[in-house]
Nucleic acid binder design. Structure first.
Length: 194
DNA sequence: CCCTGATTCGC
DNA sequence: GCGAATCAGG
């Protein structure tokens, strides 16, 4: 498998949506997540904050030891926009030309409501939670393990209290549904050193 | 053990 | 340029 335009495009799209490398790899097929990550890096879109802010947190407890590796800050985005540019309503009101910034025009696709919401739990996530709680294992505190969702349900002061107990996803304390309401944001894993 | 992304390095 | 191996961490 090679990185055709289409595949790269899908990669960019999914990565932009915050999909994990493994998910992207699975979707693409024929590649491993390593390949995806490698490509992501080569494309220079490893981190999604390009907004000009020079926010490279690499200075931590670094006494000395500086790898001094060549780090090309590849930027320069080609202008080619393959497709999906509505460009509708050109005859509308004149553009003030004082656009604050390039506000991405939403292609009006079907599944794309990733509006930059600050902190707001999606109704879907909440719905998923209540749905999940129905089939929760209702574990007691002592029954919790490393791999059981520790989301509390009910009032601890009463006997009507239990923990979700569903299998957790990855090192998180909750199952997928509860992780969804516990924290919104993207995968936050930072810090790299060597 | 599951997963995540990051980096290295031989190809 | 590519990606498996490896690393580092949740």
């Amino acid at each position: 498998m090679s990185w055709t335009d289409e595949r790269v495009e899908l990669l960019k799209k999914m990565w932009g949506e915050g999909q994990s490398a493994s998910q992207i790899a699975k979707e693409l097929g024929g590649v491993t997540r390593n390949a995806v990550i490698g490509k992501v890096h080569r494309l220079g879109l490893s981190n999604r904050s390009t907004g000009g802010g020079a926010s490279s947190e690499t200075a931590k407890t670094e006494a000395k030891a500086k790898p001094a590796a060549a780090k090309p800050k590849a930027e320069a985005k080609p202008k080619a926009k393959p497709a999906a540019e509505p460009a509708a309503a050109p005859a509308a009101a004149a553009r003030p030309a004082v656009m604050p910034a390039r506000k991405a025009i939403i292609p009006a696709g079907q599944p794309l409501p990733p509006q930059p919401s600050a902190n707001e739990i999606s109704p879907e996530a909440l719905a998923k939670v209540s749905e999940v709680e129905k089939k929760a294992k209702k574990l007691s505190l002592l029954e919790l393990t490393e791999r059981t969702c520790k989301w509390p349900v009910g009032d601890p002061a009463t006997e009507d209290f239990w923990f979700c107990g569903l299998p957790v996803q990855a090192g998180k304390p909750y199952c997928e549904a509860h992780v969804g309401v516990a924290f919104q944001p993207m995968s936050s894993r930072r810090d790299r050193r060597r």
